[in-house]
Computed example of a mutant assay.
Amino acid sequence: MRRVIIFLIGIHMYTLGFSNENSNKPLERPGINENIKPNFPSEIPLIPLVPALPNTTENIDEEGNIRNLEKNFTVMIEAKVNVFIPLEIVSDINIDATVYGNQIVEVPFEIELNKEPEKKNYYKLKYSETEIDIDSDGKIDTYIYSPEFINARYIKDNYVKIYGDKISREGDYTKKVYITVEAGI
């Protein structure tokens, strides 16, 4: 314990010796090549301190052997991580249409993605259904059309086509269709 206190006092006095009026001048260090400059990050991260006295209760292994701490090291590690964000649809689409008689109605809609695809002609839209029997009479009366590939963040060439002559019953109909992004097939 006494050695640690003397060591800390020595460090404190050492740092006080450099806090005079010449502290604005860079320290001269003989024997160091001036052309070699270390590559330090602009911000020095906080490094946790290593305890001065080892706790003997924490240094006992499973067999009851006491492990003595011989050397302490502080290591700074730089980590680089590649993060991949998948292509996702970020817009909800609600299509409201009114069909009179045998009318054919085309309703355009736009799909927004979270980012522009990195690869062209690689991603496709996949619908849970593209041919829908909206009134459940056995005849397909509603079709969903989209471009074959996704090449932009906003996909504008989509539309729903409704054939009024194939709808046999009058009424309000609702259908949920799920859209996902499919990668290169």
Score class of each variant (00 low, 15 high):
residue 40 F to M: 14
residue 40 F to A: 12
residue 41 P to M: 13
residue 41 P to G: 15
residue 41 P to N: 11
residue 43 E to C: 07
residue 43 E to P: 15
residue 43 E to H: 11
residue 47 I to A: 13
residue 47 I to H: 15
residue 48 P to Y: 04
residue 48 P to G: 14
residue 49 L to W: 01
residue 49 L to D: 14
residue 51 P to K: 06
residue 52 A to M: 12
residue 53 L to Q: 11
residue 54 P to Q: 10
residue 54 P to S: 12
residue 54 P to W: 02
residue 55 N to L: 08
residue 55 N to S: 09
residue 55 N to A: 10
residue 56 T to S: 04
residue 57 T to E: 13
residue 58 E to D: 11
residue 58 E to K: 07
residue 59 N to M: 09
residue 60 I to Q: 10
residue 60 I to G: 07
residue 60 I to T: 14
residue 60 I to L: 11
residue 60 I to Y: 12
residue 61 D to Q: 13
residue 62 E to C: 15
residue 63 E to L: 12
residue 64 G to V: 09
residue 64 G to S: 14
residue 66 I to S: 15
residue 66 I to N: 10
residue 66 I to Y: 01
residue 67 R to I: 15
residue 67 R to N: 13
residue 67 R to T: 10
residue 67 R to W: 03
residue 68 N to E: 11
residue 69 L to R: 06
residue 70 E to P: 10
residue 71 K to D: 02
residue 71 K to G: 01
residue 72 N to H: 05
residue 72 N to W: 06
residue 74 T to E: 08
residue 75 V to K: 08
residue 75 V to W: 00
residue 76 M to P: 02
residue 76 M to Y: 07
residue 77 I to F: 06
residue 78 E to Y: 01
residue 78 E to K: 04
residue 78 E to T: 08
residue 80 K to T: 11
residue 80 K to N: 13
residue 81 V to L: 06
residue 82 N to S: 11
residue 84 F to R: 14
residue 86 P to T: 08
residue 87 L to V: 12
residue 87 L to T: 15
residue 87 L to S: 00
residue 87 L to K: 12
residue 88 E to I: 12
residue 90 V to T: 13
residue 90 V to H: 04
residue 90 V to L: 06
residue 91 S to I: 13
residue 92 D to H: 02
residue 95 I to M: 04
residue 95 I to V: 13
residue 96 D to I: 14
residue 96 D to N: 11
residue 99 V to D: 12
residue 100 Y to W: 01
residue 101 G to A: 08
residue 103 Q to T: 14
residue 103 Q to V: 15
residue 104 I to C: 03
residue 104 I to H: 02
residue 106 E to H: 04
residue 106 E to Y: 00
residue 106 E to S: 05
residue 107 V to I: 10
residue 107 V to S: 05
residue 108 P to L: 02
residue 108 P to M: 06
residue 109 F to N: 00
residue 109 F to M: 08
residue 109 F to C: 04
residue 110 E to A: 10
residue 111 I to C: 07
residue 112 E to A: 08
residue 113 L to W: 01
residue 113 L to G: 01
residue 114 N to M: 03
residue 114 N to H: 09
residue 115 K to T: 10
residue 115 K to M: 13
residue 116 E to R: 06
residue 116 E to L: 06
residue 116 E to S: 03
residue 117 P to Y: 14
residue 118 E to T: 13
residue 118 E to F: 03
residue 119 K to G: 08
residue 119 K to E: 14
residue 119 K to R: 05
residue 120 K to T: 15
residue 120 K to R: 02
residue 120 K to A: 13
residue 121 N to R: 04
residue 121 N to E: 07
residue 121 N to K: 10
residue 122 Y to H: 14
residue 123 Y to P: 07
residue 124 K to S: 11
residue 124 K to Y: 08
residue 125 L to F: 03
residue 125 L to M: 07
residue 125 L to P: 03
residue 126 K to Q: 04
residue 126 K to C: 05
residue 127 Y to L: 14
residue 127 Y to E: 03
residue 128 S to H: 08
residue 128 S to A: 04
residue 128 S to V: 03
residue 130 T to D: 02
residue 130 T to F: 04
residue 130 T to N: 03
residue 130 T to H: 01
residue 130 T to L: 00
residue 131 E to W: 02
residue 131 E to G: 05
residue 131 E to D: 06
residue 133 D to F: 00
residue 135 D to E: 07
residue 135 D to Y: 04
residue 135 D to M: 07
residue 135 D to N: 12
residue 135 D to A: 12
residue 136 S to N: 09
residue 138 G to C: 03
residue 138 G to W: 00
residue 139 K to P: 04
residue 139 K to F: 01
residue 139 K to Y: 00
residue 141 D to Y: 00
